[in-house]
């Protein structure tokens, strides 16, 4: 287990550094999209953890938006440190996730999804109408600083990209190790048989709350990153279409896989960008057809594609035993 931790951490570090170096040679408009991908990828990562338990949240925008607004409103008070803002957003959305998780953990399937949706729409409605929180026009977010270092002009986006990369890298390592831990493995079996888990002495409700808090924390961090990279946040972050987008990306990613969460977000954002560039009048149609085709041909998402490639042949001994 210890060597697994070390290998994963080293691998993630190497990948993060490689991407950070690569980022230095990429035009800014791609870099902005990459930063968006990292932020949204974190939300998707959280949804993947829930999907492993057969729970789909159609309201993950709530935590995403909460994180963004915590970051935005605190930054308006003159605090602009990216580390502090991200930490605060993570903490805030974790608390929200814990409180709502206590209530939501009693529900499954469509009820769980719809309650989440309803709660996120309540936040949307409140933000839309409260003039003190910017109303529908939203809130401006100051450019972030890093432990006293304030990058200027052209460096600003790149430094943020490296910061986002570090945050996403650390979160991914955490998420991967979590899925391999006892708690993580127990969570994965919630979808198979809850009664059996209870007989083993585990509380399903506790497992669900635990995963839900992790997912909402990740969404909050993603929200904070989005607030800092775009400099302006609006209540639409909690709107159901935002949450729906995350669910779509999660389906595209598939529940098993950490990198695939970011990969799926990258594919989604790229298709939206290219479709918007070339078909300004009908880009949604291209996005929709892509959704349809990906569900038809990739029922297990992107992670399913690559897993299938590595899986042992059907006639090999020990089929179905996951030994990675």
């Amino acid at each position: 287990m210890l060597s697994l931790q070390r290998n994963v951490a080293l691998g993630a570090l190497a990948l993060t550094i490689a991407l950070a170096v690569l980022g230095a040679f990429v035009p800014e408009w791609i870099l902005y999209t990459c930063a968006l991908v990292l932020a949204k990828g974190l939300v998707v990562l959280g949804l993947c953890l829930l999907l492993r338990m057969n729970l789909v949240s159609f309201g993950q925008g709530l935590y995403y938006c909460a994180g963004a607004y915590i970051c935005g409103l605190v930054s308006q008070m003159g605090i602009s440190d990216a580390f502090f803002l991200t930490f605060l957003a993570a903490l805030g959305s974790a608390v929200v996730g814990l409180i709502l998780g206590l209530f939501l953990s009693g529900y499954r399937s469509v009820f769980f999804a719809m309650f989440n949706l309803a709660l996120s729409m309540i936040l949307y409605g409140v933000l839309l109408k409260s003039i003190s929180l910017g109303g529908s026009d939203g809130v401006g977010v100051a450019a972030p600083t890093y432990l006293g270092y304030a990058p200027d002009g052209e460096m600003r986006l790149y430094v943020f990209f490296v910061f986002a990369l570090a945050v996403a890298g650390a979160s991914s390592v955490f998420a991967f190790l979590y899925t391999k831990s006892e708690m993580g493995l127990a969570s994965a079996s919630v979808k198979d048989c809850e009664i059996r888990l209870e007989y083993l002495g585990l509380s399903v409700r506790y497992l669900i709350i635990f995963n839900f808090v992790i997912a909402s924390t990740l969404a909050g961090i993603g929200g904070a990153l989005v607030a800092m990279v775009s400099g302006h946040i609006i209540p639409e972050l909690a709107y159901w279409t935002t949450s729906g987008e995350f669910v779509f990306i999660t389906v595209l990613s598939g529940p098993n896989g950490i990198l695939s969460a970011f990969g799926a977000t990258a594919v989604f954002e790229t298709i939206r960008l290219v479709a918007g560039q070339n078909m300004p009048n009908s880009w949604q149609m291209l996005l929709g057809s892509f959704l349809l085709l990906s569900i038809l041909f990739m029922p297990n998402g992107i992670s399913g594609l690559f897993r299938r490639a590595k899986a042992p042949k059907p006639d090999a001994v020990g089929e179905g035993i996951n030994n990675d």
Partner: peptide, 17 residues
């Protein structure tokens, strides 16, 4: 021509583009 639909984040993305 660019479509303005999609929210602030998408607009910044398209503006940069």
């Amino acid at each position: 021509k660019v479509d303005e639909t999609g929210g602030a984040q998408v607009q910044i993305q398209r503006f940069r583009d």
